[in-house]
Design a protein around this nucleic acid. Structure first.
Length: 483
RNA sequence: GCUCCCGUCAUCUAGUGGUCAGGAUCUCCGCCUUUCAAGCGGAAGGUAUCGGUUCGAUUCCGAUCGGGAGUGCCA
């Protein structure tokens, strides 16, 4: 069996949509699993909306996710160019072939004429479906006047194909229209450009969203007319917004870059997207490699689904918790930019790595991690006003000083030693841990919620810890007396 | 209207002609605990409806209802 060739073919008309990522992912997974080739092609034939900037955003997003392409922009390949607007000569050639073989014809009807007819019909019968009347279909002369090229679509028979996800699909040809394949300016339309590219790029499996399922029969007709082998098809169920509508910016974050900025781990993004419309028994959490291993088209579902932000978040949390899925070193690296955003740009990766274990179970995103790590890297913690008011009160001062003095005498600054030291002191002083824990926590971290006290003390180190306890005591002294 | 596609807890899903219909997220309760998490234990929650086939249907078939895609010189 020859190795499959798959492709992802986004239009550079905006950011990379999360649904697009899922399509790219499934193609990529199959290519990687089978040792096949993953081609990236840019479908920029909509010149009104396509921009270089959005093409770059798409490439950057795919790189961030680790969805590497074997052929395409930036890496080249034997089937280039990989931008449709650079392939115009190829489409022209194929158009000529179709005309020569009688599968296509020049049509001189103007858009205005056709629109007028469409409108007129709508007026007469609002429910009727307008169809190109075939004006130029059997025309004899083909002058070099402005024209489009239409496909001479068969009206009898049917197109049947076996979808790798949906199974056998049959569509009768009776309703076919002689659809336009080439605009009057020589730029191909989607169905034609995609087919010509897939043929000339040797694509063997076309996997895309279910919204393209409607395009498959006419495309198969095109393959046949071109005398090209018809590839396999796999359609993926739609990912809809929570309310069942098409997922768009109206429903919150839908571009990958937004999730990157929210501090999601790329592998977690892939994990969530993979489990959407695909399953592997009861397993929910996968590394990138595990996805490659486990993926199959047979295990893809057919029903559309609704995007769930909560579940997405929890998948990200699972990844951040797991050393296996996200080694501390990579984690630390990823948190750095988010610390920098908080004005903590001098922090080293090593320092973050040392402190990381304190937030590992808690942070759901890198943004949260940066927030939870924040106080380790400041000279003094940023005091939460409410926490300070509640816990750094008058009678906390003495307790903080007592704890400070007890800890100051510790021979070694380890969690166990500190805990033992503190316990001994508390017992001697007739206090309970709860009497000092919250004031100490606020003094050390500026917050009422934090990792375990001894973890915080340990990571902070002796000098910083003692200084913060002292400072906390001063703040407590200065606090207004309880009314 | 027509063509095509879909329908298991709120959500993502597993599964089977006979199961207590399983897991995960969310929610709720409890345990643990110096806080917040994490962890552990428990609860609630589903086969869209109606017919048929069958000894037996969530599973097979049909209809209905519901949802989606398209009906462009957009992709």
């Amino acid at each position: 069996m020859t190795k499959p060739r798959l492709r992802f073919a986004p239009s550079p008309t905006g950011y990379l949509h999360i649904g697009g990522v899922r399509t790219a992912l499934f193609n990529w997974l199959w290519a990687r699993k089978t040792g096949g080739t993953f081609v990236l092609r840019i479908e920029d034939t909509d010149r009104e909306r396509s921009t270089d900037a959005s093409r770059e955003i798409i490439l950057e997003s795919l790189r961030w996710l680790g969805l590497s392409w074997d052929e395409g922009p930036g890496v080249g390949g034997a089937h280039g160019p990989y931008m449709q607007t650079e392939r115009l000569a190829i489409y022209k050639e194929h158009t000529d072939r179709l005309i020569a073989s009688g599968h296509a014809f020049r049509c001189y009807c103007t858009k205005e004429e056709l629109d007028a007819q469409r409108e007129a019909l709508k007026k007469r019968d609002p429910k009727a479906q307008f169809k190109y009347p075939g004006t130029c279909r059997d025309r004899r002369g083909e002058p070099d006047e402005r024209h489009v090229v239409r496909f001479k679509a068969p009206r009898d028979g049917a197109v049947t194909y076996v979808d790798k996800v949906f199974g056998e699909v049959t569509t009768p040809n009776v309703e076919n229209q002689d659809f336009v394949i080439m605009r009057s300016d020589g730029v191909p339309l989607y169905n034609f450009g995609a087919v010509v590219d897939d043929v000339t790029m040797g694509i063997t499996l076309v996997a895309r969203g279910r919204d393209h399922m409607i395009n498959t029969p006419p495309q198969i007709l095109l393959y046949q007319a071109l005398g090209a082998p018809v590839p396999e098809f796999a359609h993926l169920p739609m990912m809809l917004a929570p309310n069942g509508e098409r997922l768009s910016k109206r429903h919150g974050a839908v571009s990958v870059t937004e999730y990157r900025d929210k501090g999601y781990a790329p592998a977690a993004v892939l994990n969530y997207l993979a489990r959407f419309g695909w399953s592997f028994g009861d397993q929910e959490i996968f590394s990138r490699d595990e996805l490659v291993q486990a993926f199959s088209w047979e295990a893809c579902g057919r029903g559309d689904g609704k995007f769930d932000d909560k579940k997405f978040l929890s998948i990200d949390h699972e990844h951040l918790k797991s050393e296996r899925l996200l080694p501390a070193s990579d984690y630390a690296e990823s948190v750095l930019p988010f610390l920098a955003q908080r004005g903590l740009s001098g922090v080293t990766k090593e320092a973050v790595t040392r402190a990381l274990y304190t937030v590992r179970e808690r942070a759901r995103t890198f943004v949260e991690a940066a927030d939870m790590l924040d106080y380790f890297f400041r000279d003094a913690p940023v005091m939460d006003e409410k926490a300070q008011k509640k816990f750094l009160v008058k009678d906390a001062a003495a307790r903080l000083r007592g704890l400070r003095d007890a800890l100051a005498g510790a021979d070694e600054w380890t969690e166990a030693a500190l805990e033992a030291r503190a316990n001994a002191h508390l017992e001697a002083a007739g206090l309970q841990i709860k009497d000092v824990a919250q004031p100490a926590r606020v003094a050390l971290t500026g917050r009422s919620a934090s990792p375990g006290l001894y973890q915080v003390l340990f990571v902070l180190g002796r000098d910083a810890s003692l200084a913060r306890l002292s400072r906390g005591a001063e703040i407590a002294d200065a606090s207004a007396s309880p009314a």
